[in-house]
Design a protein around this nucleic acid. Sequence first.
DNA 1: TCAAAAGTGTTAAAAATACACCCATGG
DNA 2: CCATGGGTGTATTTTTAACACTTTTGA
Lengths: 229, 229
Amino acid sequence: MPYTYEHPRPALTVDCVVFGLDDTDLKVLLIQRGIAPFKGSWALPGGFVHVDETLEEAARRELEEETGLRNVFLEQLYTFGELKRDPRERIVSVAWYALVNLRDHKVQAATDAGEAAWFSLDDLPTLAFDHAAILDTAQQRLRGKVRYVPIGFELLPRLFTLTQMQRMYEKILDRALDKRNFRKKVLGMGVLEETDQVQQDVAHRAARLYRFNEAAYKRMVKQGINFEI
Amino acid sequence: MPYTYEHPRPALTVDCVVFGLDDTDLKVLLIQRGIAPFKGSWALPGGFVHVDETLEEAARRELEEETGLRNVFLEQLYTFGELKRDPRERIVSVAWYALVNLRDHKVQAATDAGEAAWFSLDDLPTLAFDHAAILDTAQQRLRGKVRYVPIGFELLPRLFTLTQMQRMYEKILDRALDKRNFRKKVLGMGVLEETDQVQQDVAHRAARLYRFNEAAYKRMVKQGINFEI
DNA sequence: TCAAAAGTGTTAAAAATACACCCATGG
DNA sequence: CCATGGGTGTATTTTTAACACTTTTGA
């Protein structure tokens, strides 16, 4: 079933940088390649774009096929088009990044990819293709974006403590934040909704749980207010 | 000379949003399409990516072929991949935006495109394909970016007055800025170099000319300082 | 001498930062 | 009763915002 065109065409793929947060670290989801090139190496989940699906559909499909993840926050990152980024042939890849929280989303070992696993960002294996550059771009994007859009809530569970939230910002921005100032600021923004629930099963005073109030945030944005940490 | 692949492939194009600044307005460069579809309509300059050139090379080549522009500031914007964005077939387009100043860069009528012309952003014709959406994305990006990177100097002549610079920011951000505060702020950043030249041929007191000191800016960035208006 | 834009300082309000102790809870 | 993290307030500094008049120049 060959397809013929008048001019040669680059192949088009999508690749996904999936960030996840657990109690200790910011992590990225990688799959171990089952086929050449780079067989056995770790790589970003991704694959070829079908001609009848949008780029986002392709990214979501590959993500589900290779890692079992679905319904995640997903945003386009950048398109990588260097000539030799794939040794087989000319491939242009539209990269995406996703944010998930590690508790809600269990990753199931992939079917056509060898294995999927989370890696801490400061303990990464060597990556296939130009995936190290893609990951680096995604990290910079996340760092930039988290400062003025409340994007990070995607990484937290639905109910979270202020300390969890602070730790998330510290991981992403890679610097320490002052506890009192952080609380003053985020509570002052009016997008956090206090619940009457508290942490369970902790060996110290249980912290209050909050949830992100998206409606309040949308109202704020409409009024031109901006969210900054 | 047909090219055959196992699976059907989307075609890949680049499109460029070229912003220019003159004394009165922020403008965008459009070309009038000489062929169907949308023959006679105005569109962004762009075209197919060759298999042996990078995406940026493709964008620069198309820009020169269709508008005569070269050596401009160019950055990737976003990749548009909706299914029906082109009525002919599935085409994915990597969009770029460029910044030029209208005095230095004379636009010559294109060869294979009908005609190239500058349009004020608030007086645009109907655009072909999804180019209105692309332009809109570019405008938002410019607005966001100009606030924390000294990107706007690409729009100004090499030597410029503070009033010209202020007007540029006002056009991009679409709001008035206070003259005294603006000057205090931009001079305080230490990236403007005062020259001993002044405006020529003006019917009032001539303003001092400044130039952007890129070396000083790079030094600042290395030290982690950020540029904000 | 007039029109047009250049140039310049101060004050008040708001936001960011630095900083340390008591509290509640489970083990 | 103690270890652990939860929770809170104030003073200082820095940044932002508001605001109006004098100067220079060419026509």
